[in-house]
Nucleic acid binder design. Structure first.
Lengths: 108, 108
DNA sequence: ACTACTACAAAGTACCACAGAGTAGTGGAG
DNA sequence: CTCCACTACTCTGTGGTACTTTGTAGTAGT
């Protein structure tokens, strides 16, 4: 699928949040997960900026742990604020998708 | 619904395209239509920049007509390239929404 | 050494928001 | 009759945010 960049604005952060909500994980693995899911063009650099933002906004807790196969990993987990933000994200997502569905079917 | 700005990036243009595909229309009316649909914060300025872009990219044809209740309106209609772009937009939209649905249900 | 794994920073781009200016017609106050 | 207010309508400049690109750099196993 060609360039999804613009369409991912504002949603990629929510996706990362959802992935972290599922399990405590780290940047590199999150990137791989997104790639698997079909967001093949997402690279580490993108994910790290999102993670930095999440941390700055106090939505996640961070723990550094040795990896055994490379440099230490920084594991991220959602805190309460993060779960609330995730809920808000899904609410917005549903709102937007429902309006667009309506538009598409020519709804009034 | 609070700030949808970021989530609309990359989709608003497609919405405008879809509206124009439905009927030949003009900027002000498109804005009102989007507002009705639930995108209440979208303002004229935003729509005009999109229309300028569509025209520059050769996706629409333009016709200026007197209005009777104000300055002349610029009516936009999709051309063949515009219809193709719209089809690509929906394909991307379906792709993204399906991947996100998968992510949400914890799909592998 | 080489490769895979992992984190990060800087510069660039695209899209939308905000705010304001400017044009055209209508209806009402004086 | 003129001026003003109001609505409809278009256009432009500035700015913010998020994602991309590109590159650096460090750790550990083969």
């Amino acid at each position: 699928m060609d360039d999804l960049t613009e369409m991912l604005k504002g949603t990629l952060e929510g996706c990362v949040l959802e992935i972290i909500a599922g399990e405590e994980t780290y940047g590199y693995a999150i990137t791989r997960r997104l790639n698997e899911l079909g967001f093949t063009d997402v690279v580490e650099g993108t994910v790290y900026t999102i993670l930095v933002r999440l941390e700055r906004n106090g939505l996640v807790t961070v723990a550094k742990r040795p990896s055994g196969v490379g440099p230490p990993r920084k594991f991220y987990a959602l805190n309460e604020a993060g779960r609330e933000e995730l809920a808000r994200f899904w609410a917005k997502w549903e709102y937007v998708t429902s309006r667009i569905a309506k538009l598409r079917e020519g709804g009034r």
